[in-house]
């Protein structure tokens, strides 16, 4: 099996709030720094993925947001326009407003149609690049959240099963070939060592392993708190925080010592409670786990994206 970054299509999912976009951006940055030309696709568009490269928002046309990283935002109307042009030979001039409204209606009502346009565009970019017509070495998709990602990625199969004949069905086979090939494609899950994210990850991995066309890649565990002390040092810490040493320190340093001890206790307790969930994940999921440390930073930008990329590089060790 090729290494994660040596595939051609990586989907990244995760529960809200775990840092899915940051990890997606970091994977793109890492691949680009390893000499790859990366297409970074934002699907569930909040339009803030490019912030992580300190670049303004982008549209449907890919823009280079960092050397080697080209970002685009997938929206259904633009995908539809391209699809009609490429596949159905329907020329679409100018805005397709009314048609898009109509289509939006059908796409909302008919299962899998909206999703297949999204996944179809992604697969199309991969096929074009594999066959040398598009410049990407790797396509990375900031995909839907854990609860919806399989519906999104399995849209081609849903359509194939639901629709007996018709043009849209005919498009599903080549997409399925790309999506189901473990040498090309991997679905990766970002999580955090907390109860809900870990449970959702385990559940998703089980569902994906048994019922999805898309092969699983790695689980990225974000925000892993450091273990402040070794066991031996913890004994020392307890001695420092207890009398008589506490008073000795307070006499030398001032009244803030208790605050520092309390802070350390909170850090230790937070780490301990999260380790339980990390262990649970480790036992339940038979996939490579990539650990990214909790970053004590003010806000997110290129510097933080790079820190996460470095952590991922160390974990991937390639």
């Amino acid at each position: 099996m090729p290494g994660l970054l040596d595939r051609r299509l990586l989907f990244v999912t995760g529960k809200g709030g775990v840092g899915k976009s940051t990890v997606t951006a970091a994977l793109a940055l890492l691949a680009a720094e390893r000499g790859k030309r990366v297409l970074l696709v934002e699907v569930d568009a909040k339009g803030n993925l490019t912030n992580l490269f300190e670049h303004p928002a982008v549209g449907f046309e890919p823009r280079e947001v960092h050397p080697g990283v080209f970002a685009m935002q997938l929206d259904t109307e633009a995908s539809l326009r391209e699809y009609l042009k490429l596949n159905l030979r329907i020329p679409v001039v100018g805005r397709i407003g009314p048609i898009a409204n109509v289509f939006d209606f059908v796409a909302n009502a008919a299962p899998g149609v909206k999703e297949i346009l999204i996944v179809g565009k992604v697969c199309w970019e991969v096929r074009e690049s594999v066959e040398g017509r598009a410049p990407w070495d790797l396509v990375i998709v900031d995909a839907a959240a854990t609860g919806h990602v399989l519906a999104q990625l399995d849209a081609p199969r849903t359509i194939r099963d639901l629709v007996q004949t018709g043009p849209i069905r005919n498009q599903t086979e080549w997409m399925l070939d790309i999506l189901s090939d473990p040498a090309l494609t991997a679905l990766n899950v970002v999580t955090a060592p907390e109860e809900m994210p870990v449970n959702e990850t385990i559940e998703l991995v089980e569902r994906a392993a048994t019922g999805s066309t898309v092969p699983l890649g790695a689980v990225v565990v974000n925000r892993v708190l450091p273990e402040p002390f070794t066991t031996a040092d913890e004994v020392v810490f307890e001695a420092l925080a207890a009398e008589p040493v506490r008073s000795t320190l307070e006499a030398s340093v001032g009244p803030g010592v208790d605050g520092v001890f309390d802070a350390a206790r909170l850090a230790v307790a937070m780490r301990r409670s999260r380790v339980v969930h990390l262990d649970h994940l480790r036992r339940a999921v038979d996939l490579p786990l990539l650990l990214v440390p909790y970053l004590f930073v003010r806000d997110h930008g290129l510097r933080v994206t790079r820190m996460v990329a470095e952590a991922l590089a160390a974990e991937l060790g390639e």
Binding site: L84, F103, V163, T165
Partner: peptide, 9 residues
Amino acid sequence: ADRILGTQF
């Protein structure tokens, strides 16, 4: 709609 989805669907 017909060209995308097919009549049956």
